[in-house]
């Protein structure tokens, strides 16, 4: 971005100062000269700027004259030149309700506005689709289906495109058809809607509510819900267990008393029978052999 190449020496002192603050660089003593600031700026910020950190997150300075040099988007007003309030208003114009714009969030919102301002209509389908990847709310899915044709094919490739998606996440300008269809919903580029806060129980004995019907449930809450659905009250579990134990015991007792005894008796009698036959046969043999030997 040409913005980063602007010479810090041309910047105003207060701007330099806030730049340094924004990049968490320790400030020199209050009475130091501008050169000191410029030096610090060159040393810390210009090195650090790896194309993704805007060098002007400051809010106090509206040094629009400096911004003239950057021809980045001539027709698009540069978000970094806006005041906090203007930035917020600009975002609102594009259907995005911004939170507080402070030093640490300004860069994020500027980026957001740049994305919203990007005029290419091709990407916004992508962006919309990607926005849904992380939210499984049904309502949003519907909206996406109606709002974007041909987004279906992309769903298949979703997983491979994880790298890309973050960059495309929000390049979707507000759709008028969307607004027509859902006049009540506030149009947001990603299809993520702010939901109202529900009473919950938590740490200090407050009511716990694991289920947030409006918000996409996280995997854990879904798991938890599934477990809760499966659970049977513990008393019933114990009761069933006891019944089963008693039944098993009864069966065991009956079997031991009656049903097996005939078999056992039969087996015993069989054993005895065979023993008796053997006993009868053996003497006959022993009698035969001496007779034979005697004949020889």
């Amino acid at each position: 971005m040409p913005l980063f190449e602007e010479d810090p020496a041309h910047l105003s002192k207060s701007r330099l100062k806030s730049d340094l603050v924004a990049h968490s660089v320790a400030l020199p003593p209050a009475q130091s000269k501008k050169d000191v600031y410029v030096e610090l700026h060159l040393k810390h910020i210009d090195q650090k700027n790896a194309a993704d950190f805007s060098s002007d997150e400051e809010d106090q300075v509206r040094d629009v004259a400096d911004k003239e040099e950057d021809a980045e988007d001539a027709e698009i007003p540069d978000p970094s030149g806006l005041t906090d309030d203007d930035l917020k208003a600009a975002l609102l114009e594009h259907g995005f309700k911004a939170g507080p714009i402070v030093a640490s969030t300004r860069a994020v919102y500027e980026k957001k506005l740049r994305k919203l301002l990007q005029p290419d209509g091709q990407d916004h389908l992508n962006g919309a689709e990607k926005g849904v990847v992380y939210s499984d709310s049904e309502e949003e899915d519907e909206e996406e289906e109606e709002g974007s044709q041909g987004a279906k094919e992309e769903t298949v490739e979703r997983s491979d495109q994880t790298q890309q998606e973050s960059s495309q996440l929000s390049q979707e300008p507000v759709k008028d058809t969307f607004k027509d269809m859902f006049p009540d919903t506030q149009a947001t580029p990603t299809g993520i809607h702010a939901t109202r806060r529900k009473p919950i129980k938590g740490a200090a004995g407050r009511p716990i509510q694991y289920v947030y019907p409006d918000t996409p449930a996280s995997p854990t809450t879904q798991e938890r819900r599934a477990v809760e659905r499966r659970l049977v009250p513990i008393q019933i579990q114990i009761l069933v267990f006891l019944i089963v134990v008693v039944l098993l015991y009864l069966i065991y007792a009956c079997v031991e008393d009656n049903s097996f005894s005939p078999f056992v008796a039969l087996l015993e009698s069989l054993n005895q029978g065979s023993d008796g036959e053997e006993g009868l046969l053996l003497p006959a043999e022993t009698q035969d052999t001496p007779a034979l030997s005697g004949q020889e």
Binding site: S104, K111, G131, I192, A194
Partner: peptide
């Protein structure tokens, strides 16, 4: 401060 916005926080 980003209002729990997933996309902004990710960015």
């Amino acid at each position: 401060v980003l209002k729990k916005d997933e996309e902004l926080f990710r960015d």
